[in-house]
Structure formats: structure tokens, C-alpha cells
């Protein structure tokens, strides 16, 4: 199905707003840097003050890129899950994937005390964290899938996700009971969600995982569209359901896992963004929706981070607070409207 003119226009507008928000995002912070200096800096030219250069290159740019990658990844994994589970309210946070990833990270951060020093350093490296949290979200997703198979009612899956969420947080609680104050502080900061303080190397790792996720989801656009008719119809038009399901699970685990490892559990982006995209584009065609959620996810996370900077003050709020404040009302509004998507 070719894109309509209106859809193309919206996509262009979204791309434009991502660029604008990117610049707004890097211009905000406790130190004011003139816009023309920022533009210069991005193109590698020297700035008037060397401190500005350090702030731009070591803090603001990595953070802006993290915001973009996190937004893209969470939004896409939400879109895939909503189609796979035939449930408009599915998302990595609601289904407990983020909690699963938290559990993985908790085991690493809080559990290192029980490990020998050499193994501990290995696990505390960025790759170790990604591995642990990816594994955590993968296991939770598998568990949800197994239970979901027994359930006819797709809404019940949300409750299952909720249960897995509280189950994993209970284990995290037990773990934190036995950890030192220092470890606990580290884990608490992580669990508040933060997209700042990532090194370029970490941004690179996150970026490549998100790229893999996006490429794999482009590969399943056609089966995703077939799944809109339900599993049986999809199979009857020649879709290999098992293979598609495995790819979707893989993509969502990679995305939710790597993002949660670096940025902490970030709520509601995965649920709300695909919804807003469906409202804007008025279609179920995943070719359009994938591009739309991708751009919208980046834009919304950049926006949330701009708000988190509290322009005009020196304070910075945790990003998770902002996404929840914006996301939770959207979900309630969607439920009340009861529109069928």
C-alpha cells in the first residue's frame, strides 16, 4: 500500500520536529550557549569558550542521541507488541519487560557482592549490563507468552504482565535488603531512569542495538500487516507465524533490554507513542506506522528531556517522572474513549 500524501506530509513534519527538538534539547541546560555556537560546534568548528565545547561534546550531544535512540527503541517495541498480542494497551513497561530488565540489572548491581572480583567487573561493564537486562526482559516476555497462549482474552495478558512486574520487583526488594548502601544508591539512581551520563562508547552500543532492532522490524512489516487479521488468517495467507513471533520477541527483548540497561526503566513511551502515531496517521499499515512511531518516539523523548531540564532553573528532573506524567493520562484517556484500534 503506497503512502498517501497526507501521511508523507505528517512524516516530513515529524522529521522536521525531531530536528528542531534536537537543537532545542542541546541548547537547554544550566549553562547558556548561543545557538550559532551550538551549530558551529556540531560541525566540528572550534567554539569561543573551551568549556562550551566540553559541555556540548561530553554532555549534551550524547544525551540528545541517547534520547533519540531510547525514544525510537521503546516506541517500536511497543508497536510490535501491540500487534503481536492483539492488544492496544501492550508495551514493554506494561507487560513487565522493563521489570524483567530491572531484575537482570538488579542481579548485576546488587548481586556482585556474591561474585568473585574478576567476574564482577566483567558483569558491571556496559556489555554485561545489556546482557543481563536483555536476558531479564527476554525471560519475562517468554513467560508472558507461555501464559498468554492459555488465555483467550487478550486483556488478561495485561494482568499477567502486571503480576510478573510485581513478582520481579519483589525479588529486587529482597536483593536490595541484602545490599550495601552504596550499591542501593547506585541501583535507585538507575531505576529512576536517566538518559544523561552516557559515554560516547555507551551511546554507540545503545545505537547499534537500536539499529539492529529497527532493521529486524522492517523485515517483519509484511507479516505484521498480516497479523492484523489475526493469527489464523495470517497463516492462511502464507505467513510463517512461528518465525514472525520469534523475530518480534527477539527485537523487543533487544530493544527493551538494551534501553533499560543504559537508561533505566522508562515508562509509557512504548505504550503511548504507537497510539498517538495510529491516531495521527489513521492507518494500520506497519510501513507507515513503523516510520511514524520511530520519528514520534524520538521527538517525544527529546521533548520529555527538554521538560526534565526545567528551562529557566538549575534543577533536572528524572526522565521517568516526565514520561509517566505525560503517558499515564494519555492511557486513561484512551481507555475512556474506548475507540477501537
Amino acid at each position: 500500500m503506497p503512502f498517501t500524501k497526507k501521511q508523507n506530509l505528517f512524516l516530513l513534519l515529524l522529521l522536521f520536529s525531531v530536528v528542531i527538538l534536537f537543537f532545542v534539547n542541546i541548547s537547554l541546560g544550566s549553562v547558556a550557549i548561543p545557538l550559532e555556537q551550538l551549530t558551529k560546534g556540531i560541525f566540528g568548528q572550534p567554539l569561543d569558550k573551551s568549556s562550551w565545547e566540553i559541555i556540548l561534546w561530553n554532555f549534551r550531544l550524547p544525551k540528545a542521541f541517547t534520547a533519540i535512540f531510547v525514544g525510537i527503541g521503546l516506541a517500536i517495541s511497543g508497536l510490535l507488541m501491540q500487534t503481536l498480542f492483539r492488544n492496544p494497551l501492550a508495551g514493554p513497561y506494561v507487560l513487565g519487560l522493563s521489570s524483567g530488565a530491572s531484575l537482570g540489572v538488579a542481579f548485576v548491581i546488587l548481586g556482585v557482592a556474591f561474585l568473585p572480583q574478576s567476574v564482577a567487573t566483567l558483569f558491571l561493564s556496559p556489555f554485561g549490563l545489556v546482557l543481563a537486562s536483555g536476558l531479564g526482559s527476554f525471560l519475562v516476555l517468554l513467560a508472558v507468552l507461555v501464559v498468554a497462549k492459555q488465555l483467550k482474552d487478550t486483556m488478561a495478558i495485561l494482568i499477567v504482565g502486571l503480576m510478573f512486574g510485581s513478582f520481579t520487583s519483589a525479588i529486587v526488594n529482597v536483593l536490595s535488603y541484602f545490599s550495601t548502601a552504596e550499591q542501593l544508591q547506585k541501583f535507585t539512581f538507575w531505576s529512576l531512569g536517566s538518559i544523561s551520563n552516557l559515554s560516547w562508547k555507551e551511546v554507540g552500543i545503545l545505537g547499534s542495538f537500536v539499529c539492529i532492532g529497527v532493521l529486524l522490524s522492517v523485515w517483519v512489516i509484511k507479516p505484521l500487516n498480516a497479523l492484523l487479521l489475526g493469527e489464523k488468517y495470517a497463516q492462511s495467507i502464507g505467513i510463517n507465524y512461528k518465525k514472525t513471533k520469534i523475530i518480534i520477541i527477539l527485537v523487543t527483548s533487544i530493544l527493551a533490554g538494551s534501553i533499560t540497561a543504559f537508561a533505566g526503566p522508562i515508562a509509557f513511551i512504548g505504550l503511548a507513542v504507537p497510539h498517538i502515531a495510529k491516531l495521527i496517521f489513521q492507518t494500520s499499515n506497519h510501513a507507515v506506522l513503523l516510520l511514524g512511531t520511530l520519528l514520534l518516539g524520538a521527538a517525544i523523548l527529546l521533548l520529555c528531556d527538554c521538560i526534565a531540564q526545567l528551562p529557566g532553573s538549575d534543577l533536572t528532573l528524572p526522565i521517568n517522572a516526565i514520561t509517566s506524567v505525560i503517558g499515564a493520562p494519555i492511557v486513561i484517556w484512551l481507555l475512556v474513549r474506548k475507540k477501537r484500534f
Binding site: 492483539r86 487478550t154 497479523l227 487479521l229 489475526g230 495510529k278 494500520s284 477501537r340 484500534f341
Partner: peptide
């Protein structure tokens, strides 16, 4: 089939078009 279609924004035309997959 008899089963209900999952919630989506599909139009009648798009449903028919999916038959070409």
C-alpha cells in the same frame, strides 16, 4: 473464518488487499 478481527484501523479495502500477500 468465524473469529473476530483483532482491533485495528484496517479499512475494508485494506482487508481485501491483504489477500494478495
Amino acid at each position: 473464518l468465524t473469529e473476530q478481527l483483532p482491533p485495528s484501523n484496517l479499512t475494508i479495502y485494506e482487508i481485501v488487499a491483504l489477500g494478495r500477500q
